[in-house]
């Protein structure tokens, strides 16, 4: 289904409730009433085009208008990506961690196996945090600074230093490793952990992991296919302008 701005947000959520965390990142929360997406966005001062594009991209893998998404300012993109990180680190990860801890505490036998899974998750968590922090310190401000420089024609020394200091290949490899670890965690739970004492809890964890994975993949897709090419294009643009050599 293609989501359009005339639709009622409540109807859209009935159709795909996985969009709830996504719209939360735009500062939009429950209590939509019968208002349309357009009305809600105007009220919350959210860019309608950007909102529609993001939720469509999230809702349907086939929908990924690269050209269209690249037309939005980098600062808008970065703002969204930052909020996504916040959601992962402040909400989702602690929630899943709590569930996994509960599974370990509940274990009546094979405690070591559960502890191994828990440690694996902790390792994963730390890797994810390091990765997001690196992005927030290096890539995101860099993208915004590039955009600013193109607008003003001024290139600060700091920006000059940052240019080409981060390898894109390295960046994509990190994404891949984070995806693989999550994949492993799912299989550890599905295939290798001894039968749990609480089936519901295990299912809950698995369900959370699948949802988290989808969210994370979407996030990485936006970064790899939109943000990075945009940064590269802006670097080129600055060089063309002759602002940097």
């Amino acid at each position: 289904m293609l989501i359009r701005k005339e639709m009622k947000l409540a109807d859209v959520i009935h159709h795909d409730h996985m969009l709830v965390p996504v719209i939360n990142r735009f500062g939009i929360h429950f209590g939509f009433g019968d208002r349309s997406i357009e009305e809600i966005c105007t009220e919350k001062q959210v860019n309608i085009g950007f909102f529609i594009t993001i939720i469509n991209a999230f809702h349907d893998k086939q929908y990924f208008p690269k050209q269209h998404l690249q037309s939005f300012p980098a600062s808008m993109l970065v703002d969204y990506l930052l909020k996504t990180h916040q959601y992962y680190i402040d909400d989702k990860i602690p929630e899943i961690e709590g569930l996994i801890q509960k599974m370990t505490t509940n274990a009546k036998s094979n405690e070591e196996s559960y502890l191994l899974a828990q440690n694996f998750f902790t390792e994963y968590k730390n890797e994810l945090i390091t990765h997001t922090e690196r992005e927030e310190k290096r890539i995101y401000p860099y993208a915004v600074a590039l955009e600013e420089a193109i607008k003003t024609g001024l290139v600060s020394d700091v920006l000059l230093q940052q240019l080409n200091s981060y390898s894109i290949i390295e960046y994509e490899a990190e994404h891949e490793n984070i995806e693989e670890k999550l994949f492993d965690l799912k299989n550890i739970i599905i295939k290798y952990l001894p039968a749990p004492s609480d089936d519901q809890l295990s299912f809950h964890i698995l369900d959370e992991l699948f949802m988290f994975e989808k969210d994370l993949n979407e996030h990485a897709r936006i970064e790899n296919l939109i943000l990075i090419p945009k940064v590269e294009a802006m670097e080129l643009e600055l060089k063309k302008q002759g602002t940097i050599k």
């Binding site: 694996f120 693989e180 670890k181 994949f183 492993d184 550890i188 295939k191």
Partner: peptide, 9 residues
Amino acid sequence: KLGIKTVSG
């Protein structure tokens, strides 16, 4: 065979 990709896994 195992469905595990990473070394830590």
